[in-house]
Design a protein around this nucleic acid. Structure first.
Lengths: 116, 116
DNA sequence: TTATCTTTTCCATGATTCGAGAATTATCGA
DNA sequence: TCGATAATTCTCGAATCATGGAAAAGATAA
């Protein structure tokens, strides 16, 4: 991931409504959620949400697909992984030994309720 | 990490100068870099840099310590790990199986030139 | 104390962002 | 085609942010 893409992704997530959208879509899984449902669940006007969704799409964090009259939004897992990879990898490029704790300690960040 | 802290950290990094500062400090390692050196290396006025540094400190991504006349800034590894933990963990809280690929695929993001 | 160096704070300005109303586009059913 | 539904685009006011000049604050040395 290029720096400019990382900036787009980070600033996209650095806004409450957009972070809420992203987390909701991550939780919703590959099935995605319609724009209208997102607006209702989050209590945001549809036009406002639409601009936020466009920002997230441009940032490569979510993707959209028309489903009849509605438009489904789903999290873009590749884009998300690329962002995390940028944070973990590129930011420590010259000192991989400093990044080891990030990875080894990461399992602790997971709820780990899915046995093993 | 609370959502509000994550927003602060993400928006802090979603700005080119601050991302540059953060990456430079990550590369510099625990020794840190003086504010003046950062300003010179990045070609940013000292007062402008100072405000950016304050934002990063508030976000918990870097820390400062006075060293005689100068002030050393260094990356806050715990804060950084908390942010990555938030992205990997909290955003996938209900679906750890979706987050597995983040972790398993993460080693690929590292240069991995430090043998072992 | 005085001079100097380093960094921060204050303040003003220009640019960007957010949110909302209104209008527009796209799709489906009758 | 017409009407209804769903989402986006347009536009603007308010708020926030980035930047830099000037001044202030903290620390060292003479």
């Amino acid at each position: 991931m290029e720096k400019i893409n990382a900036i787009a992704a980070l600033s996209a997530l650095g806004q409450e409504t957009r972070l809420d959208v992203f987390r909701m879509l991550m939780r919703a899984g590959p099935g995605g959620v319609a724009a209208g449902d997102l607006a209702e669940r989050l209590g945001v006007r549809s036009n406002t949400l639409s601009t936020h969704l466009a920002v997230l799409v441009r940032a490569g964090l979510i993707a959209s697909e028309r489903e009849g009259r509605t438009i489904l939004y789903r999290a873009d897992f590749d884009g998300t992984r690329a962002l995390i990879g940028f944070l973990v990898g590129d930011c420590c490029a010259d000192r991989p030994e400093l990044c080891a704790p990030f990875i080894t300690g990461l399992s602790g960040a997971l709820p780990a309720k899915a046995g093993s």
